[in-house]
């Protein structure tokens, strides 16, 4: 009924797509591997040089966001090791201290260290971003695959269902989920994931359909290959790569979305630090204490941009190969 929407036009040539699956392309290129098969002693230097090659092979388009991403993941994994104080430690007497040596990112209205809160907030924010994307993509994969691979009736049903979800304002969907389940990190995650799902599902469906209608799949059918074979060898590899890219793009968008819900008063529950709710609370003090909005905002943009760049980098890498 409607034309498929190609968000990412990566796999356009099925012939090319057939030949590669997503594995690290770097190692094959490494000249050492191609050189004489003389076993080398595994020294520190060789490890370093191998790592170096690995990185140069990846190119700055991936390395820079990868390093940033590792930093964020570290903050999410071991915040206590990085932050000078606990996220809830407060001292009202020190409220609204400007950034300085004592508090790198200043303090908030209850005298909590903003730097520590931002570090501790990484976990909730990244979790919202990743889980929402997983929920959204997971739902989408099921729906999209059903529509793309199922019988005509199933496709019709699922497509109409998607259309209804699509026509339903995404924010309203999120609002309803949150008002029904009550606000909190989990609810926000579900709300953001569900409102992103129809978009993903449609892209997946069209991707599946375009692969399925391609010449080489038809050739496989003529050759009498089983359905499972075709799904495994043609459809999955072709759908998985753009899916992965979509996922990296989606994480950033999910974090931004969640922060908007926080702004509307439907975000994470206090006092847990979460960038979106920190940002929306700090917005009220934007004229008095800029640091309350600047730093959480910076980290939202940073993490969203990082995942996006990483996605682009991988996308390009796949294409170059």
């Amino acid at each position: 009924m409607s034309t498929p929407t190609h968000l990412t036009k990566t796999i356009t040539d099925p012939e090319e797509a057939m030949t590669h699956s997503i594995q690290t392309p770097v190692l094959d290129r490494s000249p050492e591997r191609r050189g004489p098969a003389e076993p080398r002693p595994r020294t520190r230097a060789s490890l370093v040089s191998q790592a170096k090659e690995l990185f140069t092979g990846l190119g700055p388009g991936i390395i820079v966001p990868l390093v940033l991403m590792l930093g964020l993941v570290a903050a999410a994994a071991i915040p206590a090791a990085l932050a000078p104080s606990g996220p809830l430690d407060m001292n009202p007497a020190e409220a609204f201290t400007a950034p300085g040596t004592a508090h790198w990112f200043g303090t908030d209205e209850s005298g909590r260290d903003v730097f520590s809160r931002v570090i501790h907030g990484a976990r909730s924010s990244l979790l919202i971003g990743v889980l929402a994307t997983v929920i959204g993509l997971g739902t989408a994969v099921v729906l999209g695959a059903l529509a793309g691979l199922g019988t005509r009736a199933v496709d019709f049903g699922v497509s109409r269902f998607l259309e209804v979800l699509f026509a339903f304002p995404g924010l309203l969907l999120a609002l309803l989920v949150i008002t029904i389940l009550g606000p909190g990190v989990v609810t926000t995650t579900i709300a953001v994931g569900l409102s992103a799902a129809p978009g993903y599902a449609r892209m997946i469906r069209s991707q599946v359909l375009s692969v399925r209608r391609s010449g080489y799949v038809e050739a496989s059918i003529v050759q009498g290959k089983s359905r499972a074979f075709i799904v495994r060898h043609h459809i999955l590899p072709n759908v998985a790569a753009p899916l992965f890219v979509l996922a990296t793009l989606g994480v950033g968008q999910a974090i931004v979305w969640a922060s908007s819900l926080s702004f509307l008063g439907l975000g994470a529950t206090p006092p847990d630090p979460e960038w979106g709710s920190m940002l929306s609370l700090g917005r009220l003090y934007i004229g008095n204490a800029w640091w309350l909005t600047f730093f959480p905002g910076l980290f939202i943009v940073l993490s969203a941009a990082t995942t996006t760049l990483l996605g682009h980098g991988i996308q390009r890498k796949l294409k170059d190969k």
Binding site: G252, Q253, V256, S259, S260, F263, G276, L279, S280, R283, I286, T293, G297, I300, V301, A304, A305, T308, L309, H312
Partner: peptide
Amino acid sequence: GNLLEVVSAAVPHFWLGSL
């Protein structure tokens, strides 16, 4: 160009509006 696009796509509306 790439950076500009990525960063602007990652900016929450309410923050941008306030700024």
